[in-house]
């Protein structure tokens, strides 16, 4: 009898607590869907396709991407153990430049997928971390799996890594940064990043 009573209380509590939990934040999958759909909507918007509108379009894309991607977290992970060697100004500049670079390559990539279909497959939550699996299906039937790794910060799911065909973007950059930072000070890497991001602006202007 007693046990039955306890069970009843527990079950009741479940029903009380559960809704409170689920109201705490959007699901990671919905967060990704919102951002990716938003990006695709902007890219497909005929009113934004003209050359004069290009800057407005980029600006809109940028604000969407910056709201979802956690470039600080990505920077820290991409630099790994060498992050301690960076001064706080260097950290700040690095986050800015790396963010710029990632934003461009992500938008470039997704820009080439405008005619393709995006499938949102699943989400897996483990505490404050989660993984969302998506699939890009090209018109010719080729499939490209894209996974997003997210971290819960201040009640919002934010992306800290993207895996394209199973290859982690952050790990890939980490191996590149490691090969530079192993023999050079942070300033050397920053200089390379400055060159890289500046070069790309020129390429767009031309």
């Amino acid at each position: 009898m007693k046990i039955k009573g306890i069970c009843l209380i527990l079950v009741t509590m479940l029903f009380i607590i559960k809704p409170v939990c689920s109201f705490a934040e959007d699901s990671p999958l919905l967060s990704i869907k919102e951002t990716v759909d938003g990006v695709l909507d902007i890219l497909r918007d005929p009113g934004l396709k003209s050359v004069e509108k290009r800057e407005t379009r980029r600006e809109k894309l940028r604000s969407l991407v910056y709201a979802r991607f956690d470039f600080e977290e990505m920077s820290r992970r991409a630099v790994g153990r060498y992050w301690r060697k960076f001064s706080s100004e260097e950290k700040g500049e690095f986050i800015h430049l790396f963010g710029k670079m990632l934003e461009r390559s992500y938008i470039d990539k997704i820009e080439s997928y405008t005619d393709e279909r995006v499938e949102y497959l699943s989400e897996k939550i483990d505490g404050q971390y989660s993984v969302v699996k998506t699939m890009i299906v090209k018109r010719n039937g080729l499939e490209i799996p894209i996974q997003y790794k997210l971290i819960l910060k201040n009640g919002e799911w934010r992306v800290y890594d993207v895996l394209i065909e199973g290859v982690s973007l952050v790990s890939n950059y980490r191996s590149q940064f490691r090969s530079i930072l192993r023999r050079n000070p942070p300033e050397h890497l920053l200089r390379k990043l400055r060159e890289k991001t500046a070069k790309k602006v020129d390429a767009v202007k031309r």
């Binding site: 670079m101 461009r104 390559s105 470039d108 065909e165 199973g166 290859v167 982690s168 790990s171 890939n172 950059y173 191996s175 590149q176 940064f177 090969s179 530079i180 390379k192 990043l193 890289k196």
Partner: peptide, 18 residues
């Protein structure tokens, strides 16, 4: 190549990860 700082290392890492 466009998004890499060092394409040689980027391809190497992508190959090993895969």
């Amino acid at each position: 190549k466009k998004s890499a700082l060092d394409p040689y290392i980027s391809i190497q890492d992508a190959y090993i990860q895969t």
